[in-house]
């Protein structure tokens, strides 16, 4: 057995008490530690595989007892971890919202200033805001008044409150769309499927008053009638406004309203990876350096020599 003395401690009379020795050959104790470590690694591996397998199996559930049709997954332009929103689509989606959805649905958490640099230039957004009448006040006499919108205003809601909204829609409340893609399971696919999913009810299913059949809506009957039709609006960039194009664009716009940080977040992800990847390598190396002596040493104890010897 070859060993190297790494360091030693001594008492006042310079007698050596403890040697720390780098040991080159393995002992039985080290072998058992090695087996133990292997057992932990195999166990941990099995546990991780099991957990991931369970999660995967759970995600593959058929939902056979659900009361709505399965969603079709669409190849969204923002699907990947570094893919931005398609801003041309977001802009067209805003036009769809403004001309179709805004008649009933509010967008309370979006202000005109948010549109700047995302769907409109600053000038366009100012023009857009000035075209809407925003309620402001109270004035000197305590009355609310209407004035043209400014960049800092939020988009006006079609109804003053929920009760008015229900009253105007046969008792059904059109939900606020600001966060709708996060508020529904698989939000983007759900909205696209819902908007394009209107159809005649299956034979034998009795119609409901004021409700419309849509298999993608929970229960199958939805208060909102079919809204999107081919060539319903005219896009400002000349794209043909087919029904599915309208639905896709408005979904992409609603994805943006729910996650206005979307593009910044993905841009920042690249920066975080660029910074943390070298740091991870460095910290691993540092750990190995610091542990090298600790892991390869052996401590031997010697009885000090008696004084009279």
């Amino acid at each position: 057995m070859t060993s190297t003395i790494l360091c030693r401690t001594s008492r006042q009379n310079h007698q050596i008490l403890v040697y720390v020795i780098r040991n080159s050959s393995s002992t039985s104790n080290q072998t058992s530690i090695r087996w133990k470590r292997l057992a932990y690694q195999i166990g941990g591996g099995l546990l991780t595989t099991g957990a991931l397998g369970y999660a995967w199996a759970h995600s593959q559930a058929v939902h056979a007892s659900g009361n709505k049709a399965h969603l079709v997954s669409l190849p969204w332009s923002f699907q990947g971890p570094f893919d931005s929103l398609d801003h041309a689509s977001v802009r067209r989606g805003f036009e769809v919202y403004k001309q179709v959805c805004a008649a009933c649905h509010s967008l309370r958490f979006v202000a005109y200033r948010h549109l700047v640099g995302v769907t409109h230039t600053e000038e366009e957004a100012k023009t857009l805001a000035a075209q809407d009448q925003i309620e402001d006040g109270p004035d000197d006499k305590g009355n609310m008044f209407k004035r043209p919108g400014k960049l800092t205003d939020y988009l006006p809601s079609p109804y003053p409150n929920d009760n008015a909204a229900k009253d105007g829609n046969a008792g059904a409340l059109p939900p606020d769309l600001s966060l709708i893609t996060l508020g529904r399971t698989d939000g983007c696919n759900y909205i696209f499927n819902l908007l394009t999913g209107y159809q005649d009810p299956p034979a034998g299913v009795k119609g409901e008053p004021n409700l419309h059949y849509n298999p993608y809506f929970s229960g199958g009957w939805i208060a909102m009638p079919k809204q999107l039709y081919d060539d319903q609006i005219e896009y400002s960039d000349g794209t043909k406004a087919s029904e599915s194009q309208l639905a896709k664009d408005v979904t992409e716009f609603l994805k943006w309203t729910a996650e206005r940080d979307h593009d910044d977040r993905k841009r920042l992800a690249i920066k975080a990876i660029l910074i943390f990847a070298p740091l991870a390598v460095l910290s691993y190396h540092w750990k190995r350096v610091k542990w090298a002596t600790l892991k390869s040493r052996k401590i031997a104890f010697y009885r000090p020599k008696a004084k009279d010897e």
Partner: peptide
């Protein structure tokens, strides 16, 4: 990676029609 999708890339195709349209 996102060439042609960001606002600064697509801004020009909306520029003029917008004012008239709105």
């Amino acid at each position: 990676r996102n060439q042609g999708k960001l606002w600064k890339h697509v801004q020009s195709q909306f520029k003029m029609p917008t004012d008239e349209e709105e």
